[in-house]
Design a protein around this nucleic acid. Structure first.
Lengths: 191, 191
DNA sequence: GTATTAGGAATGAACATTCATTCATAATAT
DNA sequence: ATATTATGAATGAATGTTCATTCCTAATAC
């Protein structure tokens, strides 16, 4: 087993356990067992628990941004780009519910608070898809004049909450619902 | 000091500590100290930690519902009622940031998941303000045809996220912003 | 004087982290 | 080609700490 694979096993195990049980319900010993490695081994790959937790989140963020960037309709109107992102979010997280639950745990924790201050979804190097959307929308006067955070909240908070409801099996998120949801969010930010 | 007062002191101390530091950062000994009572005393009022945590949340929910029910414009159009609730939420939580942060912590924890299944903000006995809004909106055909949860998410998720941003001092929530926010949320659910 | 309430030291369970030891593989010598 | 040695990855028992809960004693009420 290569080094990289083992690292990924640990990340996967931590993600699944924390997503399912919360930070509490996932002691290092359990993560080690699920990853099929010794406890000590984890510390060869991650300095300590906090660093592991942050690494898992970074992994998720990177995968999401990569997914959303695929076929991004850069040269099309803001509205189309918004739908691409909104529906991409739904598609990605419906397919990867553990990633979603982990992100939520992370987000609403002391880690997340620190992280959010820097800026959500801003991955070093890559252009910020979300910010680009906001700035172009403002410049072209197709969205309301709002602080970027508020725009972001109107545009994506209902999607996040609905994804949560879907994952908890309180609603069923299909293409039709995703479409209505995205359209409604657009209604709330469009001029 | 009466029994009731002591109970409230404990609830307040738990709320403030957990809101500020998370569930982790608020051991019983710290709650006791902040409340000005012995650790053992807490166990005279609350069977165990989990029960205390749930009691704090119930307290918050009750206060909120009471606040929102005051001057509720029952006989006015759905739209007005929606604005009453939306702005009431903002007013209440801007004035009571610890209540907001605690609710968030609670909501995104194993406790919250269990709780949400029953139904958010449904306080036994009182009519459910939120559900009433949805049902009347549908009946009068002033809102889109959506599952109740999705309606709820569109209507209130952006407000919750923005309250969070305000409390973390990333934006400033004043009356003007609350108004725009409420109006935008309404835009997303209105027919 | 008795009953009830408060207090906080003591207890034991859970957990993150460490570190001495094992073991597989690679490097080197013969 | 085979034997010997070196390297460092992997391991999990041991350690020290934190914390919820208990329970005995003190204070207070009646």
């Amino acid at each position: 087993m290569t080094k990289q694979v083992k690292r990924e096993d640990i990340i996967r195990a931590a993600m699944d356990l924390i997503a399912a049980q919360g930070f509490h319900g996932a002691p290092m010993s359990m993560i080690a067992e699920k990853a099929g490695v010794g406890v000590g081994t984890i510390y060869r790959y991650f300095e300590n628990r906090d660093i592991l937790i942050k690494a898992v989140y970074q992994e998720i963020e990177e995968r999401l941004v990569t997914f959303l960037s695929r076929d991004y309709p850069y040269d099309q109107p803001v509205r189309n780009c918004f739908f691409h992102v909104a529906k991409g979010l739904v598609t990605y997280f419906v397919q990867n519910p553990m990633e979603f639950k982990y992100s939520e745990q992370f987000h609403y924790s002391p880690f997340g608070e620190a992280h959010r201050r820097n800026r959500i979804f801003k991955t070093a190097g890559q252009p910020d898809i979300f910010l680009e959307l906001y700035e172009r929308g403002l410049a072209q006067q197709v969205i309301k004049t709002l602080p970027p955070t508020v725009f972001f909240n109107l545009a994506f908070a209902p999607i996040a909450w609905s994804l949560r409801d879907h994952i908890l099996e309180m609603i069923r998120m299909d293409d039709a619902l995703a479409q209505v949801l995205a359209a409604s969010c657009w209604d709330s930010v469009k001029k």
